[in-house]
Design a protein around this nucleic acid. Structure first.
Lengths: 216, 216
DNA sequence: AGAATAATAAAACAAACGTTCAATTAATTC
DNA sequence: GAATTAATTGAACGTTTGTTTTATTATTCT
């Protein structure tokens, strides 16, 4: 047999991407075979090579698109011209929302870096560094404006990102806490971490506090 | 050929463990072949099976020993009977020191969980959960004693652990900051995060502040 | 309707995989 | 010094891997 009725390149490629993200997140890039992926899509392994020349190309494409999506999400959600506290709050909200919406893709982008060739690894890391740089800039602005009290901007940025990204490890929708509650708590922890004056800028603090009271 | 002169089971096994940790951390468990590991040790692949019946047994052994080491390190360094702030400081110091001393083993234990069989995965996760529980207990004690101000103990514990473990991702000895400086800064961030009264308990705050001044 | 193109299947490739087995030599025990 | 045990080699096993090639069918274009 050959071309099947109703087959469509666009749909197949999208199906391959989605299945690949799920399989790689679950079993790992090396552990996922092209045949396994093809079977998940409902196609023969050879068909995959019409869309991605090699297995590594597939991985790289997934990662690149994920990082580009993250940068675009931040650019769309950042409140231009707002004070640093609001900017930081927007960064935290965007980061958590984006990563929870795409848990599997995030897992892939964070865990499978070592399967990339050196130059592709560099490309992805560059995108990640650029994104982290945005956070450092916000923190610096806040320090210069006297709103934040931070010992080491670089360290604080890394700590914040690790803390926020860590949410995807344990958060499961529909369990004890809602996404809104988790986000609120992380916002409050973030503001403590950067030494922001409580009640300044985010418009979230009272709200957070009420939730805290309910859970106490 | 067969047994080589000067060969020793104990030494070989130790060499296998060490090489395996390094190779798995660098290339991933699935990507590391038994032949590659054997070559690193300077032995034929078949020789590995004298010490570990399967590749997965090797992985599991590495992880189990790492988690046991972590628990033992905490038990030895915990200041029994001290106030919660000192306990928390000890937890942070031990966690960071242990994980930086064994960056590769930590990487393996955190990244290769999905390569374990279900029951072995459960065993490792149980050990990890028990360790995290210790932190939650310290936080709870601090809240009850009125020393800490925490919205959600569980969330704060996870945030702290992610934040601390994240150090191994970017920290490299001999770069901008020393381990002591990093630890001091993380201690201070931890105390902010749990809402500890500044200057209480840890005996580190003034020291931290001096470093901050130097870097500013 | 016929020609061109897009999408797939089926089969095959060499290479690499984890693992096993029998043979062989070094060290230890008696 | 002979017998036993410990440590390792070298070769082989059957699978599975990513990928390529060729053929075949569905769709689109003229």
């Amino acid at each position: 047999m050959a071309r099947t009725t109703g087959s469509d390149g666009g749909r197949t490629e999208a199906a391959v991407r989605e299945a690949a993200v799920n399989l790689i997140a679950r079993y790992g890039y090396e552990a996922m075979s092209m045949r396994q992926l093809a079977a998940e899509v409902g196609v023969q392994a050879a068909a995959l090579y019409r869309y991605f020349p090699t297995k590594e190309d597939l991985l790289f494409t997934l990662m690149r698109d994920h990082m580009q999506g993250l940068r675009e999400a931040w650019e769309h959600s950042r409140p231009a011209g707002a004070d640093p506290a609001r900017q930081l709050a927007a960064y935290v909200r965007n980061h958590i929302a984006f990563h929870i919406e795409r848990r599997h893709a995030t897992h892939v982008s964070n865990m499978e870096l070592r399967s990339l060739s050196p130059d592709r690894l560099t490309q992805i890391l560059r995108m990640r560094t650029a994104y982290e740089k945005e956070l450092r800039a916000v923190l610096r602005d806040g320090v210069e404006a006297g709103i934040f009290n931070i010992e080491d901007t670089g360290l604080t940025a890394m700590a914040l990102i690790q803390m926020m990204t860590g949410v995807i490890v344990w958060f499961r929708p529909g369990e004890r806490l809602s996404l809104a509650e988790v986000t609120a708590t992380y916002l409050s922890m973030t503001m403590r971490l950067v030494g922001a004056n409580i009640g300044v800028g985010t418009g979230e603090e009272r709200h957070v506090h009420e939730h805290a009271q309910l859970r106490a």
